[in-house]
Amino acid sequence: MRYEKPQTVAEAARLLTGEKGLSRILAGGTDVLVQLKAGLVEPDLVVDIKALPGVRSIVAEAGGFRIGAAVSNAQLGEDKAVRALWPGVVEAANLIGSTQVQGRATMVGNLCNASPAADAVPALVAAGAVARVAGPGAARDVPVEKIPTGPGKTKLKRGEFITSIFLPARPPRSADAYLRFIPRTEMDIAVASAAVSLTLDEDGRIAAARVALGAVAPTVLLVEAAAKAILGSRLEDPALEALAAACSAAASPIDDKRGTVEFRKDVVGVLAKRAARIAYTRAGGQS
């Protein structure tokens, strides 16, 4: 196994494109190193991207924020401006692992590991976040929900990697929230999860919404029917019930050691309702 720490994006792309065997990208390493230790992958090449320009910084851009691929979730959690604009994204990223893991783990790593149960991803999808993909050709921007294609699989081509995630600007009276279900209180993986991002009009009615669900399908789901269920409402009970029903209907989970199909379909609706209420309150809504 070779370990490389390129200083430029072009050099990283060249290394990754040139590798005939298996390659892995190392940022925080909280997934890759665990997989290496467990013998799940035996890469020929590991490319550490932490030395690439800009990957360790959070920069204000167009009213939003560009978050580098090697920004740790702990660093993200300490950024007051990001927290104020996208509280749901930050709370999702900060749920991953322990305090020690938070010091290493990154949102881009969480996205590229492509677990349907990734905590940061539903919140990023609900936020309409966009990933910047670098590679042998010109960089391109791809909506986050288009990156994972199934458990452990992404749309990224050979030699491609993500250098940053962009969280867009928001209108006033906007907020987001993320909730997951775990049997414990921490140090666990979502059995089901829901992220809700919404914008209120001046009357406190929901003018725009995005609802994303985790751990209930091979990839994180963006559920338009769930968003529609609460549009125009002040989250009155019928709207919340319609939201939950839309989420349960959209979910197509599996039975596994962490939960049953029935449990996940029920609980994902409950989480969506609760997350919607939190986001609504954060956006200034009076329920």
Partner: peptide, 24 residues
């Protein structure tokens, strides 16, 4: 201890064998 239909142990680690953590 959770076993699959093949008789293999599915949760041989502290992630899915859930002992309580302090905050629980």
């Amino acid at each position: 201890y959770i076993y699959g239909a093949d008789g293999r142990l599915l949760n041989a680690g502290f992630l899915d064998y859930r002992i309580p953590v302090a905050s629980d």
